[in-house]
Nucleic acid binder design. Structure first.
Lengths: 105, 105
DNA sequence: CGATAGTATGTCAGATACGACATACCTGTC
DNA sequence: GACAGGTATGTCGTATCTGACATACTATCG
């Protein structure tokens, strides 16, 4: 596990100390978190590519800038539900969402 | 929209009266529900193919038989989060989950 | 250095999802 | 018909998620 991924996981609200601590995460838990990070990254990419601000996206989604920021950082308080709904609302297709999820870590 | 899909949507807790009512669903909402139904179907397929009962699956997931039933029927009280976590716990890969989501309706 | 625009972080009340339980509904088998 | 194994439906207390707000950080520009 490289430092970048570790810090992303920590940012996502998951306690990641040393290697032993990390091993407390089961395979499914790790897969779920990476899946969430992939969706979060895709959301940010979509926004940036369209030249939108978090505030603008928040307005479109009927949410707030702070929640959009948390979505993009895959904060622990953000569900996959919210990420998927948001992506679809912003114009991503179901197929695109599936591909983002399927893409290998 | 055929009757089968209509009844599945209704079963999922979504009000679906006549065609006009249905049109109140936005494209994203419809996509989200179909995505959820696809995951639910896949969960049931997985369970049946392994010859498991809902009670057995519930034990594995640390949940209850009733919730597994609701998951398989894509009940409105079930989140995509729960469906995805459950599929991963039952042994599906992130790639498989993505493919289920990406598959066209 | 302000000042402005954008993003990140912390907190909270209200909303939603959760596991659990009870109970109803099948569909066989005897 | 009665029982049994499996699945569906309804409800409830609690836990988690959500939008909102305040506020802090980080540029970039003049």
């Amino acid at each position: 596990m490289d430092d970048t991924k570790r810090s992303r996981l920590e940012a996502a609200g998951w306690r990641v100390g040393d290697a032993a601590d990390f091993l407390e995460l089961t395979t499914e838990e790790a897969a779920f978190i990476e899946l969430k990070l992939a969706l979060a990254d895709y959301l940010r990419d979509m926004r940036v590519q369209h030249g939108w601000t978090q505030t603008h996206v928040a307005r479109v989604l009927g949410s707030s800038q702070s929640r959009v920021a948390k979505m993009e950082s895959a904060d622990a308080s953000v569900s996959v539900d919210l990420l998927v709904k948001s992506l679809l609302t912003l114009g991503a297709s179901r197929k695109q969402v599936g591909q983002v999820i399927a893409r290998a870590a």
